[in-house]
Structure formats: C-alpha cells, structure tokens
Design a protein around this nucleic acid. Structure first.
Lengths: 210, 210
DNA sequence: CTAGTTTCGAACAATTCAGTTATAAACCAT
DNA sequence: ATGGTTTATAACTGAATTGTTCGAAACTAG
C-alpha cells in the first residue's frame, strides 16, 4: 500500500504517513499510559513495522516525546483558539474548559489527556519538563486572556488574574482527571459551566468599583 | 476453650510486618506508578522475600489493591478529620485542601497521590471502581460539610453545595496533579488558600441584619 | 534433642520484551 | 531489464521478568 508523495525519492516508499502514525501513537499512549506500552503495542497500534519504528522514530521514549509534542501543538493551538476567538471573557473560559472536556472524552480514543494525566507520571526529566512548560504556557495564556478582559472593561481592575488563571487550570485538571476516571462528558460539560460561574464575577456587567 | 491471645504459632516467624510492608508498597507505587513497578521493585522496596510476597499478598495486582485500600483508609480518615474537626466551614475546607497538598508533597515519598494520580491510569476494573468510589465518597463528605455550614448559618440557604463540593474536589485534584508534576509545597499551599477564597462567599461572617 | 510447621534465600524454567539482523520487495535512474 | 536505494517482513539474540521450586533456617511441641 503505497502513499503518493509528490517528491519522488529513490527507494521503496513508506507504507505509512509519519504524522498519521504519531496520531495513532497518541491513542496507544492515552489508552495504556507510558510504562504500560510495549514496542509491540506501538508496532500494532501505529501500523509501522518494528525496524521502521526504530529507524524512523527511535525507541519508545523518543516515540512518546514526539507524540507528546504533536499532541501539545494541536492542543495548544485549539486551546488558544478557544481562548482568544470569542469576544467575552466568559465565552473564552467556557470554550477553554469545554474544549478540555471534549478532547478528554472524545470518541475513538481512551478518555484522559496525554499531558495532564499521562506525562506527569513518566519518570523522565525531558517529559517532566515538557509537562511543566505546557502547564506554564497554558496558565499564562489564560492569565493573558483575563488581563485582556480587564483592559476591555469586562473585569474589575483588581481582578486577581494570576490566582484565577491558576484556578481555571486546576479546575480543568480536575475535569480531565475525572474524564480519565470515566466520568461522562455530559456531566463534565455541566461542571465546566459551573466552573466558569465560579471564577468569574457573578455580574458580567460593568465594573462595580472605581 | 483455649485462649488464643498468645499468637505463638508453629513455624519460622515472619521477618516483616504485613502492615508496614504495605506502607512501603505504597511508596513504591507512588514513585513508579503501576505498570512501571516490577516484582523485584516490590521485593526490594517492601523488604519481603519473593516467595513470601506471592504467598502472603499474591501477585502485583493484589499488592496494589491492598496498598490502595490501606492508602484510602488512612487518607479518608485524615480527610474526614480535617473536614469535620474545625468549627468553621472555611477552616474545614482549608484543612481539607492543605491536607491534600501536604500528603501529596510529603518528604520521604514521591510527590502525588495513589488514588488521584496513579489509580485512574490502571486499566483494571476493580481499581477503577475503587477510584470512583473514593472520589464519590470524598465529594459527598465535602458536600455534607457544606450542608452543615448552611445549617449553622455560616452559608446562605441557597449556597450551591453540590456544585461547590465538586469544585473543591476538582481544585484539589489540580493541586495534587501539580504536586506530582513537581510544584513546590509552598506554592500549592498558597493556591489552596486561594481556592478556599474562591469557593466560599467573600463574607464568612453572619449575614448583616436588615 | 527430635519431629513438625512455616518462612527465608537462592536459584530455576518459561515467558515476554527490546533492539538488531538478514532477506525480500518496491521504487527510481539508466 | 539492470543496478542502486530505501523500506517491509520475518526471524533472531540477549536481557529482563514472572511465578515457582528446593533446601536451609527458625520456631514450637513433646
């Protein structure tokens, strides 16, 4: 089964698409964690022959790191879109948490999140660093969106953006871990709405103070 | 009837205490997860000979389940104490989350929590069920404490106890996952305080008359 | 001290696993 | 078609892991 590549290079063409194989690797790691995955799991799940897997990607750790980075890029882009596309802060946070819940409970893949649920348990410095960086970046984005909300007059000037950003992230982590535990999407979506009600001032109208 | 107070049984006495061995097993699983733990890890970490481990506890899964139950009993008891000993709702929630942070960052053991961080990733029905039950029980306890707060006049009658209990739990999950990721205790304790400020009404005193 | 019972320590075979190595296949260029 | 290049299929090797076995050790009872 050949894959058409507009750039013709000598040698037998690959029977798999590298990017698509990584997407399958994400599914494997999401369903079995890191330590629970064997090379054969990846070979079967990615549809890549064992020698090809080693020559193209490297060992399990390298596959995981690449899968993690790919996952992080997709997730980060979608999270940024959810955060900065809407006009109101409320819609932004709702979209942010809803997106977190939806990807953590998407059909066709095991529930959970590679960065939040799996990566923190991997005892590898590079993986840990990635998870920390991803968390810091996401928190910073939420915080920035809240600051924009202040600038837009949607939030009071003394709104604790730093603390609230951390809390939005922690609430998202909680929702994601519950997704991993098997909580139904419907419940989590409702709780995501409640979370937004919690972190934002009750009145979405103008600032109460000077 | 012979009094069996004397536990003098024939045979060579054991060189380990079953309870203490389980405590060591908890440390092993906390530091390496579930799939990352080998029998030899348990043999070394628990200080129990390999044949003794199999005859006394069973296989790895059985050891994990017993460790999980022991861990859950300790944690549940301490959580209940933190929740129901203080007089004010604020002190209860603060103690609850502080306790969660402190055990998740205690010295001498890897950061994290067996029930929140490790168990959800174990693909075993019994483990999953335990994690779900533990989460439901903890949420119910928090909710009950909030209800007591309403009854004591500390919280308004329309205080959304169900949603707030869920949010306290999710915030605790977030704090715990960050502990697992390496966040320092000091930061997490501060965020725990902020979390309580978030979920409780700004005025903790009684409603002003008039 | 001897017999009986249980545990401990070392080592065992069977299985699984990771990473590599042939050998065949598919493609391009000539 | 023929040679050169890259990948796929299958099998292989060495190491790790699991669960068990066997003799020695430690304790009680008589």
């Amino acid at each position: 089964m050949t894959v058409q590549n507009h750039r013709r290079v000598p040698g037998r063409p690959r029977s798999f698409d590298e990017r698509h194989a990584l997407e399958k690797a994400i599914r494997v790691f999401r369903s079995k964690g890191y330590d629970g995955v064997t090379i054969d799991d990846l070979v079967v799940g990615m549809g890549v022959g064992r020698p090809s897997l080693y020559s193209v990607f490297g060992d399990k750790r390298a596959v995981f790191l690449r899968a993690l980075r790919a996952y992080g890029e997709e997730k980060g882009a979608l999270a940024a879109k959810a955060l900065f596309a809407p006009t109101t802060v409320r819609d932004s946070l709702t979209g942010f948490l809803r997106h977190a819940v939806e990807t953590a409970t998407e059909e066709g893949s095991a529930p959970g999140c590679l960065i939040i649920c799996v990566a923190p348990l991997v005892s590898d410095p590079e993986v840990r660093q990635f998870a920390q960086d991803a968390a810091a970046a996401a928190t910073a984005q939420v915080e920035r969106r809240l600051r924009d909300g202040i600038r837009a007059g949607e939030l009071p000037d003394n709104f604790p953006v730093s603390a609230r950003a951390i809390q939005v992230m922690d609430l998202g982590r909680g929702l994601t871990m519950r997704a991993q535990m098997g909580a139904p999407r419907k419940v989590l979506l409702r709780d995501a709405e409640d979370a937004v009600d919690l972190v934002l001032p009750p009145a979405a109208s103008t600032t109460p103070g000077g």
